[in-house]
Every structure is written in C-alpha cells, then in structure tokens.
Computed example of a mutant assay.
Amino acid sequence: MTYCIAASLNEGLVLVSDSRTNAGIDNVSTYGKMHAFETSEDRTIVLLSAGNLATTQAVLEQLKRDKIKDAKININTVDYLSEAAQYLGQVSLEKQKQHMDAEGQSAFNPSATFILAGQIGDEPPAAYMIYAEGNNITTSAHTPFLQIGETKYGKPVLDRFLKPDSDLDEAALCCLVSMDSTIRSNVSVGPPIEMVIYRKDSYKLDEYYCFEAENAYMLNLRKSWEATLREAFSRLPSLDKTKSKSLLADL
C-alpha cells in the first residue's frame, strides 16, 4: 500500500510520501514514490505515485524518454501544469492498456494513480491528482490538499488544520503528523518517509528530507503529538449525566 500527500498553499507546496511496497510477515520491501524531474529553468515538477509498480515505472520511463527525445509533448514543452497532468494521464492509460486483452481484461490490476505537483512559468504552484482512468482534479480553497493510497487515517488532521494561507513550515508538520498517523494504523505504509517543501517562485527542490525507520526527529514528533492529544482529551467537558435516562424506559 501507499500514502502520499500534496498540500498546495499560497506560499508553495508540501509533498510527502512513504516508501513501502510490501509488508508481509517476513518480507518488507520499499520503493520510492516521489520522483523529481530535471526540467528547464522555468519549471519544477514532482510526481507522487500509487498503485501498480510496473505501470508506475513504465510511466516514469516514458516521461523521461519523451523529454530526452524532445517529443512534441513532454514536461518541458507544456505551458501549464494542467497540460502536464493531461499528458501524464494519457501516458498512464497507454501503459495500462499494454497489459489488457482485446476485451479490456487483465490477469492483474495494472492501474496506478499519480499526483503531479510543481510550478511552470508565472502560474502559481499547483497539484493535480491523475486517476487511473486518465482524468484529473486539482485542489480547492476548501480542500487545499490531495491524497493517494491509504488516505483515511491521515485525512482528519489535514481537514482540521490545512488552509490555503497556512504557513508552509507548519503545513509540513501537519503532513508529517498525517503520515505518522497512517503508519500507526496501517502496517502497509512505512518508512523511509520522503518530504519536499517547495517555496513559490524558487524553482528549487533544495528543502528535501528523508526520514528512515526509527528516525529521532520522527519519534520525537510522534511522542509530542500523542502527548498533546492526551492532554487535549483530558480537557474535554465531562459527559452531562443529568440528562441521561434508562434505555429500558422506552421498551
């Protein structure tokens, strides 16, 4: 399983991904799901991936080949990030179809989902989620983040704290807590955890972090978050028992 987050805020982007691809009893394997591209100076593009690993690798290779061969459409020729998302969706569909028969059936599930994030030219930084079907969505003022993979455990903290005007460094902490919450509840998501903070108009990916298992900072973050939650829980108002009645009274 996988968990990836892209927070698209006024100040820039926060991208976080885990690296676990298998979590059997005696076999844990990892594969990076955050992929940065070497592009022209007027753009920065990062790809997060979830789903079939073979499809993901094939899509990445095609994007790289198109760029090297200077194909008519590649990540350096598109004028907008939305165009890059459409291009990625078409490439993904083509790679999935290679594993299907004439009736559109396959012996395995070749689908993959992606988040394409970055900045091109003078347009604001943005993030797009590309579904296995090739279509895409972006963030909104009410939901300034995207998730792929095992999304349910880490969503509550993002819903409560992330806003378009959130401070970028605070958003990074929020995304790390979201990732840690998912790891705590699902063994199929795990380290190394990769994170990049992209600041608007910088066109640089120099704020990159990789947290291995038992990383001291992540352990401290987890302990601090859990202690804060326990303290908050202890301050909740007591249940008003004066309004209670017997369930048997209605039977």
Rank of each mutant, 00 (worst) to 15 (best):
L251Y: 15
G121L: 08
G32S: 13
M218P: 09
D42L: 09
P192H: 02
V78G: 03
D201F: 13
H142F: 07
S202W: 05
L205A: 08
S178V: 08
C210K: 14
R230L: 14
D122V: 10
Y198A: 01
N76T: 03
E170N: 14
S8G: 06
P237W: 10
S92K: 02
A216S: 15
K67T: 11
G32Y: 01
E38D: 11
I5C: 09
A171V: 06
R43P: 12
A36S: 13
L13V: 07
P191F: 04
G24W: 04
E11Q: 15
A127E: 03
V16D: 05
D70C: 08
S19V: 09
G154W: 10
L158T: 09
Y131G: 01
D122C: 04
F233L: 11
L81K: 07
S49H: 00
K152E: 11
K204F: 09
G190V: 01
L9N: 11
Y87H: 14
G32L: 00
P192R: 02
L9P: 10
K67L: 06
Y131E: 10
G12Q: 13
A23P: 01
A172P: 04
N76C: 06
G51W: 07
S82Y: 09
D167N: 15
Q98N: 05
D250C: 02
A112D: 07
P124M: 03
R20W: 05
G121P: 08
A84K: 01
L60C: 07
G24D: 06
E231K: 15
A23G: 12
C210A: 08
D66F: 05
Y80W: 12
S181G: 10
L93Q: 11
R160T: 09
K97Q: 11
A7D: 03
T44E: 06
S181P: 00
I193C: 04
P144N: 05
L158K: 06
M34I: 10
K245Q: 13
D240M: 02
T55L: 12
V59D: 00
P125H: 09
S8D: 14
I75F: 05
R184F: 14
C210N: 10
D165L: 03
T139M: 01
D159A: 08
E103W: 12
T30A: 11
R199W: 03
F145G: 00
D122I: 11
N135R: 09
L221N: 02
R160A: 15
A172K: 08
A7T: 06
E83N: 13
K97E: 10
K155A: 12
A216M: 13
S106V: 09
M179Y: 02
A127T: 07
S181I: 12
S202Q: 11
